[in-house]
Design a binder for these strands. Structure first.
Lengths: 127, 127
DNA sequence: GGAAAAGATTGATGATCGTCGATGCACCGA
DNA sequence: TCGGTGCATCGACGATCATCAATCTTTTCC
């Protein structure tokens, strides 16, 4: 259950068919939960938003620490969690570390949630 | 941060414009994190899936306890979290309590995640 | 009315998480 | 070469969470 060991979002969402068709496997549920857990934190959501909303589409830690109101180690920790989850990418240039959104990362997760609906079953295969 | 106090998903997703436009507010981040946290658990994801995949589109606790491999109080606890989050609805008929997916609940959350992308900004305002 | 069954609630416990201060490491300019 | 800066890592602490056994509540059926 260690967040540090999260895996790229693609591996999670590529796995399972619409959850309404048949139950998700325990293993896939574990992986998906790990990805969702990486997002389920106010500070990390704000970090994602701040990086995405930045004019350059990237931010260094020094740009994020103050507006977030958390210490530098804490911000680095959250950024690491997001990088490990495949949401952000890290690019170290000189002394600075720039973080970017991974294109399509949250996209796949959003798609998966959209498939979980009572009426998401297209074919009335029931008997 | 109490999950028990989660709020319906609609209230979360109706709030904030695409997160790429401007940073999410701390308050909205908190609410959104609470909703995501309700989903970020393997047992709860399996419960959602099992309910959605059931032929009747609903399940009682007794149907869920055994295949999930958890005790009845634990299952009841997870179901309560999901109901409080607005993902499931509870319908007590006689001695049994039947749980259903709330139509469109996860839909709105999925839509929100889809808007968080580097290229989600339509206008190429960057000079 | 009373036994039985389904499910919710309570209390407790072990694990995980978010946060910070202190420290270590890599890089830059003088 | 050396001090300074940006960032990652480590160790610790308090809070939250997932889980279970025990108990309570509600409903059904005799």
């Amino acid at each position: 259950m260690a967040l540090t060991q999260a895996l790229p979002l693609r591996d999670v969402t590529a796995c399972c068919a619409p959850l309404t068709r048949e139950s998700i496997t325990p293993d896939n549920a574990e992986k998906l939960a790990r990805s969702l857990k990486a997002l389920a934190d106010p500070a990390r959501l704000r970090l994602i938003s701040m990086v995405a909303a930045h004019p350059d589409r990237e931010s260094c830690v020094c740009d994020l620490t103050e507006p977030l109101g958390l210490s530098q180690p804490t911000v680095s920790h959250h950024l690491k969690v997001l990088v490990d989850a495949g949401v952000l990418s890290r690019d170290k240039r000189g002394t600075w570390a720039y973080y970017r959104l991974v294109p399509g990362a949250l996209d796949s997760l959003g798609q998966l949630l959209l498939t979980i609906q009572p009426n998401a079953v297209d074919g009335p295969s029931s008997s």
